[in-house]
Amino acid sequence: MQAVSALSNHDLRDEIKAYWSLRAETFDNQPGHEIFSEEERAAWHALILKHLGPGEGRSALDLACGTAVVSHLLDDLGFRVTGLDWAEPMLERAKAKAKARGRQIRFLVGDAERTMEADESYDAITNRHLVWTLVDPLACFQEWHRLLKTGGKVLIVDGDFVNTSVLTRLMKRLTQMAAKLGLARDAVHGAPNRDMAETHNRILSRVHFSHGAHANAVAELLRAAGFSKVTVDQDMAAIHRAQRRNFSFFKGLERATQHRYAISAEK
């Protein structure tokens, strides 16, 4: 039975890796992924400073860094940044972006759940929209705990995109209606075509948080992994307000009503 389970997880992890490799081509085109205004950049800076403080040369590991959006925010704030991702097409774009901007960010091909990095080698760990994809989040959080120096912090930015509120569902329906009138081209945010949307849903149905990554469930697993001072921050209004300018009207409202959060925790 264990062998079958391991094989299933291996297959799922391969599918997740392949999915994000394909998403790399259009990832930076979408609001909510890349940053499209200085207002939004400042809002992200404020969130990071609130939970991690200024970099001051401290080491930070940006897990599942993708095209390095968060890595650049950390670099802005003075962290010494390593970006890690297992999707090589994402990393190719991340490296090109860093080179174009003259940033000294170190990039590694690796798995956020099994990093192969040394014990107590980072002062901070960040990730955005990673936790919902994890196969075994408790083991993963224990891995992150191992990587942090004593007093180091993890900052998770994610959301529960499964258990949506009545208001969110209403906004989604209004966005879809607007799309039929040609007023909301961003009605489907994320996977750029039907095949990839089906892949996304198939992955979601099999990961640990298939029923939604609620902040409280994530926080409880962080505590079980050995973290303390776990703080759930749902004040994402400044970021959503800045992003809204690049969404259609109803899509922006839909996004603002979702259960999105930042969670910080300390070793």
Rank of each mutant, 00 (worst) to 15 (best):
L91F: 10
E88T: 05
I105Q: 10
K17T: 15
R202M: 03
L12E: 10
G152V: 05
A94K: 02
L63P: 05
F36K: 14
R23V: 01
S264P: 07
Y261R: 00
S248Q: 09
A112E: 01
C65M: 05
D195L: 15
M1E: 14
A98I: 07
I105M: 12
D76V: 04
E92K: 02
R173I: 15
P137R: 01
D111Q: 03
E266M: 14
R223P: 01
R206L: 13
Q2Y: 12
R241Y: 02
R244P: 02
K172F: 14
G190K: 04
A225T: 05
Q142D: 07
S248H: 12
A225F: 08
A191W: 07
G252F: 04
A238W: 06
V69C: 11
S264K: 05
Q2W: 08
N29G: 13
R206E: 14
D186F: 00
R169T: 07
R23N: 11
Q243V: 08
I156A: 00
M1N: 10
A18L: 10
A118Q: 15
F141T: 05
H240N: 12
R146S: 09
H211C: 14
A265S: 09
T175Q: 10
I263C: 00
D136G: 02
M177S: 12
S228G: 14
E39G: 01
T67Y: 02
R41Y: 00
L147I: 04
D76P: 03
V70A: 07
L204I: 07
A191Y: 08
R146E: 09
R255D: 05
K50G: 04
A24R: 11
F79R: 07
E88R: 02
R202D: 02
G182F: 12
T133N: 11
A262Q: 05
R202L: 04
A256S: 15
I16R: 09
A68G: 13
D233A: 07
A18S: 13
E92M: 01
L147R: 03
T164F: 01
R80L: 13
L49Q: 10
G32N: 07
W132T: 12
R80N: 14
A187P: 02
T150Y: 04
D11H: 12
A100V: 00
G53I: 08
S248K: 04
R101L: 15
D11I: 14
E56K: 04
Q30V: 14
D136C: 03
L148S: 06
P31H: 02
R93P: 07
A64T: 09
P192D: 11
H72P: 03
E266W: 03
S248P: 13
S165Y: 06
E254T: 07
D233V: 12
L22Y: 11
S165D: 05
A24N: 09
A96L: 08
V70D: 06
M171G: 08
H72G: 10
D14M: 14
A187I: 01
G182L: 11
A219C: 09
C65F: 06
F227V: 03
D136K: 10
A6L: 15
M196D: 10
K229P: 03
K229W: 13
E117T: 06
R41L: 01
L183S: 12
S59M: 08
